[in-house]
Design a binder for these strands. Structure first.
Lengths: 169, 169
DNA sequence: TAGGTTTGCTTCAAACTTGAACCAAGCCCC
DNA sequence: GGGGCTTGGTTCAAGTTTGAAGCAAACCTA
């Protein structure tokens, strides 16, 4: 099959997206590194834990929520644990499993870092968008996520299913 | 000043964007790693070089175009040079400078990898968007790039200027 | 034209990410 | 209830990214 190249419109959109997303991630990473001493993903780990009952989540659930690989999460949580922001417990119901728990100190760090983070996101993104554009942004990327969810990466045919496992109290 | 938190709409948009952009980058990285043996940024380096007269660019111009740091580019070009896809020449007009040149082999690798890459981008993104959404995407992220261009990261006041240096033939 | 500053790029150490093993605990099914 | 497969998670080596130095060539400017 002959390649369906991008149209000029699509090219421009793609380039704009790539440039902006790189700049945006860099900006956020730098800001959080400065004010909280950690990169964006690490902050997101704390944030995710903070929003969940008991502030505890199975490693795999956390990884799935953040769309990152398990080894990456293992490494990150190890660092956060060393810093005292997260504690690790083993899951009682499933001896294989382990659970990450946000500590009080982790919660404190998160709360202290949150305003600066939100301000950065606002300044870089939302302050520049109209309300309609906010809606457009959500629609576009929700659609992209749906398309990518669970597809291996190419021509796989793995039927995808979601487990709703409890966080193992 | 009290924090201006994100509204529910903004929250949803932000989460959708983060999730999708992570998934998208991962998908592209994996595809290119498989089919071209290199991550997305490396591919972009080749692509940028291919679009420019003489297929040569000063390191800094290249880094600016890709929105990546100089050390990162140095490392990447070193690898690409080792693979024979890029050659490095020193700039005659400015003895400090060095120039990256896309080799014929690099061009060949690029051309061979391009269709698969475009197909991935299409499948993940453009095939799911209406023409209006393509326009919206461009507008939103062009605006974000403009906002972020040249700002250090926070409260700096550095007036930004662009040099239009020739690529040092 | 000497001295100090800037610019262009690289080097370095430390942190992070990746994919491929690896391992132990559950699951299945006879 | 003992193989064999799957699942949950970690470990490992190799590769990449980062920010801080470092270094040499240009650029002032007196």
């Amino acid at each position: 099959m002959t390649t369906r190249w991008l149209s000029p419109d699509e090219q421009r959109a793609w380039r704009a997206y790539i440039a902006a997303s790189v700049l945006l991630e860099d900006t956020i990473d730098r800001q959080l590194q400065q004010e909280a001493g950690m990169p964006h993903v690490y902050y997101s780990i704390l944030a995710n834990l903070s929003e969940v009952p008991e502030r505890r989540l199975r490693m795999t659930e956390l990884a799935e929520g953040l769309k990152i690989t398990r080894p990456r999460l293992t490494y990150a949580v190890a660092r956060l644990e060393k810093d005292g922001l997260v504690r690790r417990e083993s899951c009682q119901w499933d001896k294989r499993g382990s659970v990450a728990v946000l500590t009080d100190e982790g919660m404190a760090v998160l709360e202290q870092a949150a305003p600066g983070h939100v301000e950065t996101v606002r300044a870089a993104l939302f302050d520049r968008l109209t309300p309609e554009q906010v809606g457009q942004l959500e629609e576009i990327f929700t659609s992209v996520t749906e398309g990518l969810q669970g597809e291996g990466g190419g021509s796989e045919e793995v039927p995808w299913r979601r487990r709703s496992s409890p966080s193992c109290s």
